[in-house]
Amino acid sequence: MKNAGTIIEKLRRNGGHTLGSIHDLAGMRLVVHGGRGEQDRVADQVGRLFADEVRRPRLIDRRQHPIQGYRALHVIVYPDGYPI
């Protein structure tokens, strides 16, 4: 979970963001070895776990086009409507 200080820092750093646009107030990091194919397989499994929620999972792939050197595959899920 982010704390108030890290949330404020992120809002300041990313000028146009609002609290509602931050999708990583809570989350979990999975380190997957085995290359992109294995990463895609795990992301698909995570997405299927939350497929019946009010909002369908969303995939953000920053592996090919990193932002400030940050490369990751994000699966945003919405348990009870909240982005995680």
Rank of each mutant, 00 (worst) to 15 (best):
residue 1 M to I: 13
residue 1 M to E: 03
residue 1 M to G: 15
residue 2 K to N: 06
residue 2 K to V: 13
residue 2 K to P: 07
residue 2 K to C: 12
residue 3 N to P: 01
residue 3 N to E: 09
residue 4 A to G: 12
residue 6 T to C: 10
residue 6 T to F: 05
residue 7 I to A: 12
residue 8 I to S: 11
residue 8 I to L: 15
residue 8 I to D: 14
residue 9 E to A: 15
residue 11 L to E: 08
residue 12 R to G: 10
residue 12 R to P: 05
residue 13 R to E: 12
residue 14 N to W: 13
residue 15 G to W: 15
residue 15 G to K: 15
residue 15 G to N: 15
residue 16 G to T: 12
residue 16 G to L: 15
residue 16 G to A: 15
residue 18 T to A: 15
residue 19 L to W: 05
residue 20 G to I: 10
residue 21 S to G: 01
residue 21 S to Q: 04
residue 22 I to G: 04
residue 22 I to K: 02
residue 22 I to P: 00
residue 22 I to A: 05
residue 24 D to C: 00
residue 25 L to H: 02
residue 25 L to R: 03
residue 26 A to R: 15
residue 27 G to Y: 05
residue 28 M to W: 06
residue 28 M to R: 08
residue 29 R to W: 03
residue 29 R to K: 08
residue 30 L to Q: 11
residue 30 L to F: 11
residue 30 L to K: 06
residue 30 L to R: 11
residue 31 V to Y: 04
residue 32 V to N: 02
residue 32 V to P: 06
residue 33 H to G: 11
residue 34 G to L: 08
residue 35 G to T: 09
residue 36 R to L: 11
residue 37 G to H: 09
residue 38 E to L: 11
residue 38 E to F: 03
residue 38 E to M: 10
residue 39 Q to T: 08
residue 40 D to A: 11
residue 40 D to K: 05
residue 41 R to H: 02
residue 42 V to G: 00
residue 42 V to Q: 03
residue 43 A to V: 02
residue 43 A to R: 00
residue 45 Q to F: 04
residue 45 Q to C: 07
residue 46 V to M: 09
residue 46 V to Q: 03
residue 46 V to F: 00
residue 47 G to C: 07
residue 47 G to M: 11
residue 47 G to E: 09
residue 47 G to I: 04
residue 47 G to K: 02
residue 48 R to S: 08
residue 49 L to W: 04
residue 49 L to R: 12
residue 49 L to T: 00
residue 50 F to M: 03
residue 52 D to V: 10
residue 52 D to L: 13
residue 52 D to M: 09
residue 53 E to T: 05
residue 53 E to I: 05
residue 53 E to V: 01
residue 54 V to A: 13
residue 56 R to E: 04
residue 56 R to S: 12
residue 56 R to Q: 07
residue 57 P to C: 01
residue 57 P to D: 07
residue 59 L to E: 08
residue 59 L to H: 06
residue 60 I to V: 10
residue 60 I to W: 00
residue 61 D to H: 02
residue 62 R to A: 12
residue 62 R to D: 04
residue 62 R to C: 02
residue 63 R to D: 08
residue 64 Q to S: 01
residue 64 Q to Y: 00
residue 64 Q to M: 00
residue 64 Q to A: 12
residue 66 P to Y: 15
residue 66 P to K: 14
residue 67 I to R: 08
residue 67 I to W: 03
residue 67 I to S: 01
residue 68 Q to F: 10
residue 68 Q to S: 07
residue 68 Q to A: 13
residue 69 G to L: 09
residue 69 G to H: 00
residue 70 Y to M: 06
residue 70 Y to G: 07
residue 71 R to M: 12
residue 72 A to H: 14
residue 72 A to T: 09
residue 72 A to Q: 13
residue 73 L to N: 01
residue 74 H to V: 10
residue 74 H to G: 07
residue 75 V to I: 06
residue 75 V to H: 02
residue 75 V to M: 10
residue 75 V to T: 00
residue 75 V to A: 09
residue 75 V to G: 00
residue 78 Y to G: 06
residue 78 Y to M: 07
residue 80 D to R: 09
residue 81 G to L: 02
residue 82 Y to E: 11
residue 82 Y to L: 09
residue 82 Y to T: 09
residue 83 P to V: 12
residue 84 I to T: 13
